[in-house]
Design a protein around this nucleic acid. Structure first.
Length: 500
RNA sequence: GGGGCGUUAGCUCAGAGGUAGAGCAUUCGGCUUUUAACCGACUGGUCGUAGGUUCGAUCCCUACACGCCCCA
């Protein structure tokens, strides 16, 4: 414990501490024996349409509890509002209905305090469903004042750092995280219905693999060894396919030691799933069905608006290939020279893309694709046939080994999913790892490490399989119209706050 | 890593080279059907941090911290 004084102590907090001190002197200041029997929103749904006569004919007694967010004092009576997880309910507090002393104590309570109240429902003159309190209790004293009632909490930094205050004050914020939960539940139900097995695989790995990214490193003290936080669960999930669980998925965190932006958080959530005896086209169909159903289930519509732009999930999603879509958005590039390294390198120079000597045709294509195409993929679009050079875990296309049976899925210019038919030829996979090791030796510290155990697993035989990764955070951004990934993470990564 | 913008009362925000303002909240008083309740009175600040320029800086300059946005 620190004996340093917190910097943000102020008169308002001091006043509330005095009130808490008085409560302590009167007995237990933190009681936990009040029980509610109703939620605000349930009451609104069940009784909101009733007239006062019906309450007079048959009294409805309820007990509610929540945070007091509104207090309107009329002298000998008050209107207050309590907010629980479902919504808000108004309470009328009248001096003359309460036991001696209760009302006088209540007058000292503050907005932000946690309160329990019980009594009968009625409708006010303005038609608002209200509980007329026969009992009211302070359950938890709040020491810190809440933001101003009308403008609420607007400061982005406080909204992210003190998410608890954001959640108290902002309905929209609570809504985002309810939708996030609904999206994940929808995915689980969708996959469970197809007999996928949900699994958990290690986040701490000795060899990070399954993606092209820089890992976080950590240290195990007892074993005195370096460990990496996973950049993807991919290789372990495919080990499970080898083991015979031929439909598996995992929804959990991966970690990438890269920049932070509106699209990137160092830890983020992915769905990865693997399905044996299926190819990438089966998964394209699956993603399309999943998203169409999800859109309908989450928003009630197959059309959704993101940052002012409308996206139609009812229409069949567009499908194109990397090479076709490069030509579409780069009319100057000659189709016949799409696999001419010198030509592509010159195109990159023109586009201001730095070219490394180690880049092959495939890498150059992808650089051009990322620079000139991605932003333009607005409506839901599958892009297929990624170069083998940039797809070290993907199965080569039977007709054209320059390409793999791989796709990425884009909406609003953002990659939401990446999937492919899996490379299950152990010897070819070893070859691909060796190529990656050469890139690594040449200075590419994102290149994949050679994973000997993964090769051994493939040598036992992995059935023909397809797999996909879906970025859950970006999906939630899309469905909640959130401009920043931080808006869909309860506790986004921030630089540490300084307390002195 | 580079650029732009921001940081003033608990919150939302004004403000100007000459010692700091509003609304809400708090405190006190009034009010038994309000909806940002209302009426009256009073409080409340190291103007992000550290330097510099100046008779004087919260305002101008520099650096740093934190945040937001854009670019790599």
């Amino acid at each position: 414990m620190t004996d340093k004084k917190q910097t943000d102590e102020n008169k308002l907090i001091a006043e509330r501490r005095r009130k808490l001190e008085a409560l302590r002197e009167q007995g237990n200041a933190f009681p936990n024996n009040f029980r509610r029997n109703a939620l605000a929103d349930e009451l609104q749904k069940m009784y909101g349409a009733r007239e006062n006569e019906s309450f007079e004919a048959e009294a409805v007694e309820v007990a509610v509890a929540g945070r007091m967010l509104v207090k309107r004092d009329f002298g000998k009576a008050n209107f207050i509002k309590l907010q629980d997880r479902s919504g808000q309910i108004q309470i009328r507090v009248e001096r003359d209905r309460l036991p001696d002393g209760v009302y006088a104590a209540f007058k000292k309570w503050d907005v932000g305090d946690i309160v329990g109240a019980s009594g009968a429902l009625f409708k006010t003159n303005t038609g608002e469903l209200t509980v007329r309190a026969d009992e009211i209790r302070l359950l938890t004293k709040s020491l810190r004042p809440l933001p101003e009632k009308f403008h609420g909490l607007a400061d982005q930094e406080i909204r992210y750092r003190q998410r608890y205050v954001d959640l108290i004050m902002n309905d929209e914020s609570r809504d985002v995280f309810r939708k996030r939960s609904a999206i994940v539940q929808y995915i689980r139900a969708f996959l469970d219905a197809q007999n996928f097995l949900e699994v958990e695989t290690p986040m701490m790995q000795t060899t990070p693999g399954g993606a092209i990214a820089r890992p976080f490193m950590t240290h195990h003290n007892a074993l005195d060894m370096e460990l990496y936080l996973r950049i993807a669960p991919e290789l372990n999930l495919k080990r499970l396919i080898v083991g015979g669980f031929d439909r598996v998925y995992e929804i959990n965190r991966s970690f990438r030691n890269e920049g932070v932006s509106t699209q990137h958080n160092p830890e983020f959530t992915m769905l990865e799933l693997y399905r044996a005896y299926a190819d990438y086209e089966d998964l394209i169909d699956m993603v399309e069905a999943l998203l169409r159903g999800m859109s309908d289930a989450i928003t009630g519509s197959t059309k959704l608006t993101y940052q002012g732009e409308e996206f139609d999930f009812a229409k069949p999603f567009a499908r194109t290939t990397v090479e076709d879509v490069i030509l579409r958005f780069n009319p100057d590039i000659e189709k016949a020279k799409l696999r001419d390294r010198d030509y592509l390198a010159a195109s990159c120079e023109q586009l201001g893309i730095p070219v490394n000597n180690g880049f092959g045709v495939g890498k150059l294509q992808i650089e051009i694709f990322e620079k000139t195409v991605e932003d333009n993929l607005r409506q839901p679009t599958f892009v297929t046939q990624y170069p083998t050079e940039v797809s070290p875990l993907s199965r080569k296309n039977d007709a054209d080994p320059f390409l793999t049976d791989r796709f990425e899925f884009f909406v609003a210019g953002r990659e939401l999913a990446n999937g492919f038919s899996e490379l299950n030829d152990a010897e070819e996979q070893a070859e691909r790892f060796r190529a990656q090791a050469e890139y690594r030796a040449a200075g590419d510290d994102e290149a994949m490490a050679f994973d000997h155990d993964y090769i051994r697993a493939l040598e036992y035989g992995m059935p023909p399989t397809a797999g996909i990764g879906v970025g859950i955070d970006r999906l939630v951004m899309l469905f909640t119209d959130s401009p920043s990934i931080r808006d869909v993470l309860l506790f986004p990564h921030m630089r540490p706050e300084v307390f002195d």
